[in-house]
């Protein structure tokens, strides 16, 4: 579904991604783990169309989408939940969700998707008239995910959904991620919480200094001594 070849991206004058290959197959859950500054967020931003790659090709559903802007990609079913959530602070929860459905015209199905998101996150239904900025960190993450679901994505890119959240909320977010995958959405998850990410996903890539250092199935990576030492704190 997503095929990345030789991707190089520079960001702020730094060559953050130095030529990576990556593949995500339909209905798969894939994680990209690595230390701070390894280039994970830059990779996702380039895939979602927020940054233009310096080199390399990105194919999505067989189409070359290299360098296409984000607003076009979301129409093709490729959505990103950005790092730091990017909730519109001065839009209500409901308006935030409506923004998620911005690229769609099918009003009737948007209404059912509202119900779907509110069922997935009852807390958002309670707070639909509140401003996005008044929500707690966990609620904002729910809103950011719910908002991305409103675009009816086929491929969902998630950037650090557990960042800054309390352990209980982290668990809830990972449960939600699994529930979304169970509905048939393909996932590419960037995480610093390597353990939870590898336990959730099918396959994983380990990124170091802008390159893919390891690529394997998630169980293999969980047992890999190098991964255990560097990312699982053993």
């Amino acid at each position: 579904m997503l095929e990345v070849k030789g991707l190089k991206v520079s960001y702020g004058g730094i060559n953050a991604v130095k030529g990576i290959d990556l593949e995500v197959r339909a209905k798969e859950m894939v994680t990209l783990i690595g230390a701070n500054g390894a280039g994970k967020t830059t990779t996702l931003k380039a895939l979602a169309g927020l940054l233009k790659p310096a080199e390399g090709r990105v194919h999505y559903n067989g189409r070359d989408i290299t360098g296409r802007p984000a607003f076009e990609l979301v129409r093709q079913g490729l959505a990103l939940v950005p790092e730091g959530r990017g909730v519109f602070a001065r839009l209500t929860v409901k308006e935030n969700l409506e923004m998620g459905a911005y690229s769609r015209g099918d009003r009737a199905r948007i209404a059912t998707d509202f119900d779907r998101v509110y069922a997935l996150f009852p807390r958002l239904a309670e707070r639909r008239r509140q401003m996005g900025g008044t929500l707690s960190g966990g609620e904002q993450q729910m809103l950011a995910i719910g908002r991305a679901l409103m675009s009816r994505p086929n491929l969902l890119l998630l950037d650090e959904p557990s960042m800054g959240l309390a352990p209980l909320m982290v668990r809830r977010i990972f449960e939600t991620v699994r529930a979304i995958a169970a509905e048939g959405v393909t996932l590419l998850l960037v995480e610093q919480n390597a353990k939870a990410a590898l336990e959730t996903c099918h396959r994983g890539y380990v990124m170091e200094s802008g390159l893919i250092a390891l690529a394997d199935t998630a169980p293999e990576l969980l047992n890999n001594p190098r991964v255990r030492q560097a990312y699982l704190g053993e």
């Binding site: 169309g49 927020l50 802007p69 607003f71 979301v74 001065r90 923004m99 690229s103």
Partner: peptide, 13 residues
Amino acid sequence: QNPEVAGLMGVNI
């Protein structure tokens, strides 16, 4: 409020 995220929503800035 956030042009980058608006782009992610499908808005042509």
